[in-house]
Computed example of a mutant assay.
Amino acid sequence: MQDKEVQGMITITESAAAQVKKMKEEEEDPNLKLRVSVKGGGCSGLSYGLGFDTEAEGNDHKLEQNGLDVLVNSEDADVLQGVVIDYKQNMMGGGFTIDNPNAIANCGCGSSFKAATRTGTPEDC
């Protein structure tokens, strides 16, 4: 079931959803849910986390995107509002990209950012 307040919080493109489903199949656990998180670290202070979890925690928002069950901790919701997660393939391979309208600065590596409402702990890249 999807929380009202998380409708539109995160958009996972069809390409990203297909890649996550492929990774989920390799794990051979149909109960896995995609967890999207934010943690301290990276060049700009905050880093994204994408991983699998089997159960929601008490403070998680739950949503469904392109056939995926997605979990977001309520503490991360404000800096993830409006995020678009995509998967792009090129000659060098493929990878997830995250477009965050709340980011006021991004690291050149693309996995670290700074938000106006939350500071992190920058590390050397």
Rank of each mutant, 00 (worst) to 15 (best):
T121Q: 15
E27Y: 02
N102G: 07
T13L: 09
K88F: 05
G51H: 09
E75M: 08
N73H: 07
T54I: 14
F113K: 02
P30K: 01
E14I: 04
P122T: 12
L71W: 00
A77Q: 08
D76I: 06
V83Q: 00
L32P: 00
V84H: 02
E25S: 11
L50S: 08
T119P: 08
L34V: 00
Q81F: 02
G110M: 02
K22W: 12
D86W: 01
A18M: 13
L46P: 01
F52C: 13
S37V: 03
G94D: 10
G51M: 10
D53V: 14
D69E: 09
G108E: 11
A77H: 03
N59I: 10
E14P: 10
N73R: 13
V36S: 00
Q7V: 14
E27V: 01
N59Q: 06
E26Q: 13
Q81L: 11
C125F: 02
A116I: 08
E25G: 05
Y87S: 04
V36L: 07
S111C: 13
Q89P: 01
I12H: 03
R35C: 02
Q7G: 05
D76K: 10
F52S: 09
V84M: 08
I104N: 11
L71P: 12
T54M: 14
M1H: 09
G41C: 02
I104T: 14
G8D: 10
A17V: 14
G51Y: 14
N102T: 06
G45S: 09
A115H: 03
N106G: 05
A115L: 06
T97N: 09
V36R: 00
V79N: 01
L63E: 06
K88W: 02
I10M: 09
M92C: 14
L63C: 06
D69R: 15
G67D: 08
D76M: 11
V70W: 02
E28R: 11
V70K: 01
T97S: 14
K24M: 13
A17P: 14
D99S: 14
M91T: 08
C125M: 05
R118T: 13
I85M: 03
E27H: 08
K114P: 01
E26D: 11
V84I: 13
F96R: 02
K24Q: 15
G108Y: 12
A56P: 03
K24A: 06
G51Q: 09
H61T: 07
D99H: 09
D3N: 15
L63Q: 05
K62S: 05
V6K: 07
F52R: 12
E75F: 09
D29L: 00
M92R: 15
D124V: 10
N73K: 12
E57V: 09
G40Y: 03
T117C: 08
G8S: 08
L32V: 00
T54C: 15
M1V: 13
E14G: 14
E26I: 06
G41F: 01
V6N: 11
